[in-house]
Design a protein around this nucleic acid. Structure first.
Lengths: 303, 303
DNA sequence: CGGGATGCATGAAATCACTTTATGTGAAGA
DNA sequence: TCTTCACATAAAGTGATTTCATGCATCCCG
């Protein structure tokens, strides 16, 4: 159902996303001709040009950029509005846009796969959309309404959002084959030993490696897999979530650096925009996430 | 221009406002027949009944109430969205909904009439809408977007809103003809004398009459004119803005009660929702309000 | 209990808006 | 120069909306 929509604006946003009229005709399911007319009509009623187009390429004008951003956000909240009205009927419909931090799938305290299964098993007609991004980006998107819920370690919490503790993640320090500490057997490395080696970190959300990091890390990566590769080069020491590094350790590519104070705990949260919970799809998903938490592993049972 | 609108929802909101189909046909400018069809279509696509109607009267259903509130708010922000796009053209259009505290027109530090004149003299095509309400109500309406700007003494300031000092208002204590203190000539009344008489106050936004008020005021009024009438009965003492009480004093209906600590200063603010200033109509109005402030009267020049 | 008035629903015809089909235009590239 | 590409435009078809005319149920009044 589409109540609060506008064909012209939707066309414009899709065209901007597709980067041209001819490409957009497949996304919109109408002919290029119709798109041309719609954009012309939109420009006419606005009174200014939204994009330069033609054989020379497609480009939004400055105003077009502004209109694009506003229209995209507005259409999103219009979809949510529609979904809210539909949910009064009792059914659960609309978009559910969730965002997660990276490597969240192997988090020991939370079985997100199970949560998604449970949500999908409910009688609903919801269009799921999952994004992976940094906590800062997730926060931004929650505020604008681009996301309904997000799961990540939110170090900086915002008053406009509601946070709920989900589980913990343990970070440890690792080195790769070829690193001087890699061959060190069983012994603990002293803090001053460690401090002399270059570190690598995630480009956002740095752990407080107090005393270790001498200023800026020598290398950084936005992605967890990429960070692990950096460490595996043997050139850097770097922190990784234990659950994520396990596979790398088992395959012999990484090795934990033991030492005092070399383990950190990060708390994962479920964040939602306050007042967003009235969307049933959102609150149901939150419920499914909660019930998919797993008790912390009380020492792995010896096989 | 109307870009992001929905005929069905607008019809429903208008019908709800008008309290029936036949009344709404004049407001909407279409026949009752068309209204009937629109409401039916809306109900069909939503899947539930919005209102009971017929010769037996018109009444929103419970869901209808919810849809009404949400639709009203959504349509308002849709109008603002449209206005924002139009303003990119350079013209100033759309709604400008402002709210003021009561008796703001005679405020000595601010010539609101002049501000409105200046705004109206600008080349614009803005539909003005002015409401009078209590500071608390104004705050609420600013948050929901029902108002773009408000002028009042905002004692409790909210983080979501931006406040700007405008001017001060002096409150004094008054009594009416027939009150024991009314005949007291020129002398000051002692605090303990005053404390024995019943007080009346505004039902919201009470002044800190520390030491005077023995608990709750004996009477209260939501409206300044009403409060003045209460005082004029001679039964109560009560605070009023000096500029407002002047006319009453001159006509002999009220008289100031002199005494130590019997004058209070209230600060008037211009409040807007943060991020609302990008609407040009709003920022222009704010400018006009600012430039219509008047320096505090440095003792009236003797004629 | 019956007549008139009121408030809404419905069917058919008219109107309006939007889409497609077919073709034109102008720039880039061979 | 010729072809291709990306969009613009005209004409005609299709579908959705509106009005007009009328029907139905309820309420008011005597």
């Amino acid at each position: 159902m589409k109540l609060l929509r506008n064909t012209l604006l939707e066309t414009f946003v899709t065209v901007a996303d597709c980067g041209g009229f001819s490409e957009a005709q497949y996304a919109l399911g109408i002919t290029q001709s119709a798109i041309s007319i719609r954009i012309r009509d939109l420009e006419t009623s606005l009174g200014y040009r939204l994009c330069d187009r033609g054989r020379g390429g497609f480009r939004l004008t400055e105003r077009g950029e502004t209109v694009y951003r506003r229209a995209r956000d507005m259409l999103r909240s219009a979809r949510d509005f529609d979904a809210g009205l539909m949910e009064l009927r009792g059914t659960v419909t609309g978009d559910l846009r969730i965002g997660v931090a990276d490597a969240v799938s192997s988090l020991p305290g939370l079985n997100l796969t199970q949560a998604l299964q449970r949500f999908g098993a409910r009688p609903n007609d919801v269009q799921l959309d999952i994004t992976v991004a940094s906590p800062a980006e997730l926060t931004q998107q929650l505020i604008t309404g681009a996301l309904h819920a997000a799961i990540a370690p939110f170090r900086n919490q915002i008053a406009d959002l509601a946070y709920e503790d989900l589980c913990q993640e343990e970070h440890r320090l690792y080195c790769g084959a070829g690193h001087p500490l890699f061959t060190l057997q069983e012994q603990e490395a002293a803090p001053q030993d460690i401090a002399q080696y270059p570190l690598c970190q995630r480009s956002y959300d740095r752990l407080p490696l107090a005393g270790l990091a001498s200023g800026e890390p020598a290398a950084s990566a936005a992605n967890m897999e990429a960070l692990a590769m950096l460490i595996a080069t043997g050139q850097y020491l770097g922190p990784l979530p234990a659950h994520f590094a396990d596979a790398w350790v088992r395959s012999g590519k990484l090795r934990e650096v033991n030492g005092p104070e070399l383990r950190w705990i990060t708390v994962f949260h479920l964040a939602t925009r306050r007042g967003q919970m009235h969307r049933r799809a959102v609150s149901l998903f939150a419920e499914d996430v909660r019930s998919s938490r797993q008790p912390p592993p009380a020492a792995p049972s010896p096989g």
